[in-house]
Design a protein around this nucleic acid. Structure first.
Lengths: 207, 207
DNA sequence: CTTGAAAGTTAGCTGATCTAACATATGTTA
DNA sequence: TAACATATGTTAGATCAGCTAACTTTCAAG
């Protein structure tokens, strides 16, 4: 439950070491890693303090409380998710079917690779998600996914409202990611190939 | 944060009142209500103790720890969800399109009505979900949904593996429920009519 | 330099889970 | 029916994390 080692390469520090330099950033980075490792429910602010090399009271000069730190971690999570999804679609081809499928796969792969982060980002404390920083990053993430689907719809003259179709696709992919990492598929459909499920279903949803 | 009043109608009690009578059951019932009201993240075992009228040490004679109580609450949640989904499909017509849509709507409505319960049941601590009691009730819940879709597929000679098609429908409905209560739809597609989304999309998924 | 604000520190409060040691019913057996 | 074993309560307190208060150090502006 505790391997909180000081990572000096991460922290920006003054020579004196009484003042950290950029404790706020260092705390968020440390917390991001801790949440990825242990999950938000096991995240201890005090571990992040250890990693940043400060006392447990120090963060309160920069954050309202533990939750504000988690909010910023969520924001970083959404940024990373956006980055990966967009990279995938640009790689496989913007406004192509392959691109849409790749985007779905990237979404699911993020959920799998970053399970604990994904769990923090979705379905947990509704209060956290309402934080302005989170709202902004979340909107950017979902917005860019929807935008990509809309591009596809226009290019291929898919009938109907592009946004509605985009929401359909998003809904399906999100459901797949959730049920997969929650091990619900494993209970009723063990060995299910989720990538195939998405590849097979995407065409039906894009029309 | 605290309205834990003693509910004597719920509790089975002996005359002496030293021994509760059925503390285990009383604790689960109280905890179920508290989780529905406050969410699992704000659930205090001590509140449940107050409601059951016992000291905070008493539950440890019946439960391993706080998590075991939550596991049983999850189990009850799955039972209730199964009940509602099956009632909906039987009401609207087993093996009919209307029945499939009604089942989806019931699933989403459960998520909305019992948001905090739903959040406990999905996407939270993976450890809790692996508890045998939870696994059993969860399987029953998803299993019966899948079974119903399979019945539809057979009746209407839908080509392809019925189970695969059932998983598709389940995935979509679960995604819709999750994004809805997580207020993610509200961010990018405010005012989205989720019931319509499901009614419109179900036919495309059932073939 | 001085001085005020920013950003650390230590000490300690609070509130929740859980444990240890003890107390009281209950019900089976002598 | 007395006595014992067991189940199921109680009280007291350890622990541990979040957070606050009061004090200290550094920095930067004039």
């Amino acid at each position: 439950m505790t391997i909180p080692t000081r990572d000096d390469s991460t922290a920006v520090q003054s020579k004196s070491r009484y003042h950290h330099g950029d404790l706020k950033e260092a705390m968020v980075l440390a917390s991001y890693d801790l949440v990825r490792r242990d999950g938000a429910e096991n995240f201890k602010l005090s571990d992040a303090c250890l990693m940043a090399g400060v006392s447990t009271a120090a963060p309160y000069k920069h954050f309202r409380d533990r939750n504000e730190v988690l909010e910023l971690v969520m924001g970083k999570g959404f940024d990373e998710m956006t980055r990966r999804s967009m990279a995938a679609v640009e790689d496989a081809g913007v406004a192509t079917l392959a691109g849409m499928i790749a985007m779905g796969h990237a979404y699911v792969r993020f959920a799998v690779d970053e399970q604990r982060l994904f769990r923090l980002m979705f379905g947990q404390h509704p209060a956290l998600k309402r934080a302005s920083a989170v709202e902004e990053d979340g909107m950017k993430c979902f917005g860019s996914v929807i935008e990509q689907v809309a591009l596809y719809c226009e290019r291929h003259s898919v009938p109907g409202d592009p946004k509605t179709i985009a929401v359909r696709l998003w809904t399906f992919v999100h459901g797949a990611a959730s049920l997969l990492i929650d091990e619900d598929y494993a209970k009723v459909a063990p060995g299910l190939d989720v990538e195939a499920l998405i590849a097979d279903t995407t065409p039906s949803l894009l029309r």
